[in-house]
Write a protein that binds this DNA or RNA. Structure first.
Length: 681
DNA sequence: TAGAAGCAGATTTTT
DNA sequence: TCTGCTTCTA
């Protein structure tokens, strides 16, 4: 027990000991949130509460595994089985595996990811943008609106259309026994809603429920939690309303703001001691977030020294910004700073390119966090599609993906004919092949028929062999289809082959570690898995602010502080959420923070003039706590364009106060012009 | 059927 | 400017 409390402060200890009833822990950035939750789990177990009645829910696999490790490390005695500590979606998956039959559906469903979902919608030949329809369907599901309800409620023509597509999509999922990410939450809720006894049983099973990052929960997650906690209300949620940055994805900040209204007798504990950043950095963060009105209100208190002033650097364009930041990073590394402790953050991914170029030029190795995830890569998804066909030959969705990959001469025409036949007979393409051979022979060319026969025979063969040995599956697959070889021969093949090998390795590990697990369970697990980050020891990190959540760095650069970029403005933008993003960004910094902006930026094929972000003033730039510096990438010989004088060449660059003055030759006439009035071309 | 050329669209993205 | 998708042509 001492081990648990040894490193906790007063409010952290209080939060750990408060075991019964609803508890809201408002944990500011860097206030020891993970430590508090894991200590609480350990404390519950040490107090004799059976691990099986404790449920901890997180949003990411990474958070779940980190917490599991830390909680177990705190226990004096090893326990035979650990408490369930997983993501919301994984919990949904486990639940559905046991209770799917309540909905009259089989439990050997396959989980599809967002990309799969969009492909399905695309195959419907919509006259509306697929991402928009996908988002609307997700919204319906998160609000527990059935397709029928959506159809009858729709007023505008486009919503009628969307509601009908929604219905078609749901039918498609049911027919193919697929489950999307929303279903992993919505279906368990439906089951608990319609079955009182089960609801009671499940709620009693999980006597103590903990939720991490509660500010990111959506309406559906909230409702699911209500059901799970309905028998006891022992619900402990941990979060920070100031770090709610996923509103655009359906997260509802009201869940945390009004938690104490939803659950009677809620105890609220604030963790405000920050163990991460210097006093100066915290002051800026506090000042910025105070401009928000919609918040519970808390001030982070520093436990560290004042530290260095925050630096603000202003540039003429993104090239000089990238160059200067790369140079500063290089200096830090040369002076012995561990590259792992350096990061560059930006609001939108489009800004990564300039900074990448700058780092490349300066010879600074970097790693981009986020970006395309391992399991989202085309080559990995292709292999997954093959594996899915092997578990379920009727999976037309996966079949379509790989029927001509590697190229075997089955083009659009043939595939369309196959789909037509399947549609007419209301069955899968595989069934056409097995039970309607004559019709198939009549419809497609001889060559296509023999190719398809060969293709399905090879798959059948692999499926049979799989029953004997799981381990040889990969070799059999490669022998039959040569997918690796196909990618190897592509111009950018080397990376792809690495990914394929990595994936094969993951499969083999899985088979070794889970002797009697099925291929199907492997597939469902991988769909729920996000990136396996292997952080390169010698690299600095660059990433979006969203991707930086939960991370911390000694030396932090936040670029692109311009109105329009950060805060981003326009459709669906919420200035308070933008400000929270600013708060998240600033509070990632431990020792030194550098902010930068550029007077112009090249974006979507145009160079735009920009003014400095309001956030600079809001976090203290007006009080002179920031050092302002200006650099330029204009030099002798640069070609520039002026709105009135047209194109010219720079003859001379000089500095006047904080501005740069250029002597420019416009077709024989020399003029002195301030750098901010011309654009590089 | 497969590669080439032409054209729209481009925030953030835990599962 | 760059990417990904549709349309065009051999």
């Amino acid at each position: 027990m001492e081990k648990i409390f040894a490193e906790l402060n007063e409010s952290q200890s209080e939060a750990v000991k408060q075991i019964d009833g609803p508890l809201l822990i408002l944990a500011g950035a860097g206030s020891g949130k993970t430590k508090t939750i894991t200590s609480r789990v350990a404390y519950l177990i040490q107090n004799g509460i059976p691990p099986s009645s404790i449920l901890t829910l997180t949003f990411t696999n990474k958070a779940a595994s980190e917490m599991r490790q830390r909680a177990m490390a705190l226990l004096d005695n090893k326990i035979s089985y650990p408490p369930l500590l997983c993501t919301f979606h994984k919990f949904g998956l486990l639940f559905l595996k046991h209770h799917m039959q309540e909905l009259g559906r089989s439990n050997n469903f396959v989980i599809i990811d967002t990309d799969d979902k969009k492909r399905i919608l695309k195959s419907f030949d919509l006259d509306l943008p697929v991402p928009m329809v996908a988002a609307e369907i997700s919204r319906y599901k998160s609000n527990l609106i059935s397709p029928e309800e959506a159809i009858s409620a729709a007023q505008m023509i486009n919503y009628k259309k969307i509601a009908n597509i929604y219905q078609k999509y749901e039918n498609y999922l049911e027919q193919n026994n697929l489950v999307d990410f929303d279903d992993l939450l919505a279906l368990p809720y439906k089951i608990l809603e319609q079955n009182e006894d089960l609801r009671r049983e499940i709620s009693r099973k999980y006597q103590y429920i903990l939720v991490d990052e509660y500010q990111d929960t959506n309406d559906l997650q909230f409702k699911l939690l209500q059901k799970l906690a309905s028998e006891h209300n022992n619900l402990c949620v941990v979060g920070d309303d100031d770090q709610s940055i996923y509103g655009w994805r359906g997260a509802n900040i009201k869940n945390i703001l009004e938690f104490d209204k939803e659950f009677e007798n809620t105890k609220v504990i604030k963790l405000t001691k920050n163990y991460r950043s210097t006093e100066t950095i915290l002051k800026a963060a506090n000042e910025l977030i105070e401009h928000n009105r919609n918040r519970l209100g808390k001030q982070l208190e520093s436990t560290k020294e004042k530290g260095k002033e925050i630096e603000f650097v202003h540039f003429d364009d993104e090239t000089s910004e990238a160059k200067e930041i790369a140079n500063r990073i290089k200096k830090l590394i040369d002076s012995g700073v561990d590259p792992k402790e350096i990061a560059v953050l930006y609001r939108i991914n489009a800004l990564s390119r300039s900074i990448e170029e700058g780092l490349n030029r300066a010879g600074v190795p970097y790693k981009m966090v986020g970006g395309l995830k391992f399991y989202e890569r085309a080559e990995v998804k292709d292999i997954i599609a093959y594996l899915r066909i092997i578990t379920n030959p009727h999976d037309d969705f996966s079949l379509k993906r790989i029927i001509n990959k590697p190229k075997r001469g089955l083009g659009k025409t043939t595939i369309d004919k196959l789909l037509d036949l399947a549609y007419q007979n209301n069955c899968s393409i595989y069934t056409i092949y097995t039970e309607h051979k004559e019709a198939l022979q009549e419809t497609i060319t001889k060559k296509a028929f023999s190719t398809i026969t060969e293709f399905f025979e090879a798959l059948d063969d692999i499926r049979q062999k799989l029953e004997k040995s799981s381990y040889d599956l990969i070799d059999n697959l490669e022998d039959a289809f040569g997918i690796r070889n196909y990618y190897e021969q592509m111009p950018d093949g080397s990376d792809r082959v690495l990914n394929i090998d990595e994936f094969y390795g993951l499969y083999r590990d899985f088979v070794i570690q889970n002797e009697d697990a099925t291929l199907e369970s492997f597939l469902n697990d991988t769909t729920l898995q996000s990136d396996q980050d292997q952080i390169d020891e010698r690299s600095i990190s660059i990433m979006s602010i969203h991707a930086s959540k939960g991370l911390e760095f000694d030396y932090l650069f936040v670029i692109g502080l311009e109105e329009g970029f950060f805060p981003l403005v326009g459709d669906g933008c919420d200035i308070e959420e933008e400000r929270r993003l600013g708060y998240v960004a600033i509070t990632r910094a431990k020792k030194e923070l550098t902010l930068s902006s550029s007077a112009t930026r090249y974006y979507k094929g145009k160079r735009t003039q920009l003014s400095k972000s309001r956030f600079l003033a809001e976090c203290g730039v007006s009080q002179g706590s920031l050092k302002i510096e200006r650099t330029t990438s204009f030099k002798k010989g640069t070609l520039v364009k002026h709105k009135i004088f047209g194109v010219g060449r720079v003859l001379e660059v000089s500095k006047v106060k904080r501005e740069y003055k250029l002597k420019i030759n416009f077709g024989g006439t020399q003029r002195d012009i301030l750098a901010s009035f011309v654009e590089r071309i």
